[in-house]
Design a protein around this nucleic acid. Structure first.
Lengths: 186, 186
DNA sequence: AACATTTTTTGATGTATATCAAAATCAACT
DNA sequence: AGTTGATTTTGATATACATCAAAAAATGTT
């Protein structure tokens, strides 16, 4: 079954008409490790679900990459900014493993919101869930030391550590790779 | 006119029935400087609009207060967590000036979502806007130095600085008051 | 297996910010 | 206006983390 529909159903009721309409707009891709799904400023971002694989979102700051989040299987993602403003994201999204992905474009999503207003409840729940996650992330960055942030990451996404190299993790935590290496040594 | 309705209308269409229902559930308070609107764990938080005044949201960490945001006139606030989970917030909300406030409880809001599903579009837009703000805040905490965060705050909420003492601002920025004082001296 | 490349660790040193203590300034009240 | 309490600034020192350089370990390739 289409994993976008599957995810949507976790948040609220979906009529069979809406379901069919989503089905018809869902795109299915296979991507290789290191491929990019979105390049900032180029494409209007979308909601998507990783059927298999691993992704990171990052942006550039002073010519260097800064990771903002990692995505694993069976979650729904997408930066909210394009959905809210209809402008492209500043984020790039790259696959860190060979991946299989189901996606729906922002244009299609907004059309679906118009055609099936019931979808707005699901959209609201998803956005509210993202708020809760972002609040936690802000608090972690606000008050935790580097080592506490590392512990928080282990708690929230334990499987990441064996799948991603230290440089990417350090960038996500807002510290250098050297500092992360020393933190792990204790 | 009821400022909650006024704010809602910025995000989408409101039927006159929904408008009347919101009107009937809106509460109007006057609060003194230093009063609390919400104490964490006690009351289920709500959406509200400051007609006049100034508020801060904070929580405790190791017995010390940490400010998470400040609210000024003509914005809509409320922590999303209780709306999403139906559980009380960990945040306290305190008035920093004598204030006038219009509020709607989470229970009432959720009832309104059930009675007038059209409201979900407005709720979605509000949650999406909060996501965008929280993303900015996370990035600021992630990559900016203390002094850059201070500049960001000046840019986003310039009027705060003359209304709030340094200790509160420093706590929001995640630095000590002494460091903020030195940053301002240049 | 040997070589090249990437990733992780280690060491030496620099910098931003914290901590503790006290002085200076500002605001509130009689 | 003078006294009291709160807020802000200043100074001395400590700590967490960054930077730069290089070694060590792991991984990929022929």
């Amino acid at each position: 079954m289409n994993p976008i529909i599957q995810q949507f159903k976790r948040y609220g009721f979906l009529s069979s008409e809406a379901e069919t309409a989503i089905e018809g707009r869902t795109k299915h891709f296979f991507k290789k490790k290191h491929d990019h799904f979105l390049k900032s400023g180029q494409v209007l971002s979308s909601y998507f679900v990783l059927e298999k694989g691993l992704i990171r979102a990052y942006f550039y700051r002073d010519g260097k990459e800064v990771n903002t989040w990692f995505g694993e299987e069976n979650q729904i993602f997408g930066s909210i900014l394009p959905v809210y403003t209809n402008r492209p994201s500043f984020e790039n999204i790259q696959f860190l493993e060979d991946s299989e992905i189901y996606a729906i474009s922002v244009e299609d999503l907004n059309e679906l919101y118009r055609m099936y207003p019931e979808l707005n409840l699901i959209g609201r729940k998803i956005a509210e869930e993202v708020c809760v996650i972002l609040e936690e992330r802000s608090i972690s960055l606000h008050i935790e030391s580097a080592s506490e942030r590392y512990q928080s990451l282990i708690r929230l996404q334990p499987r990441l550590l064996s799948r991603i190299n230290l440089g990417h993790i350090a960038s996500y935590l807002g510290i250098t790779q050297e500092t992360l290496s020393r933190i792990r040594r204790y």
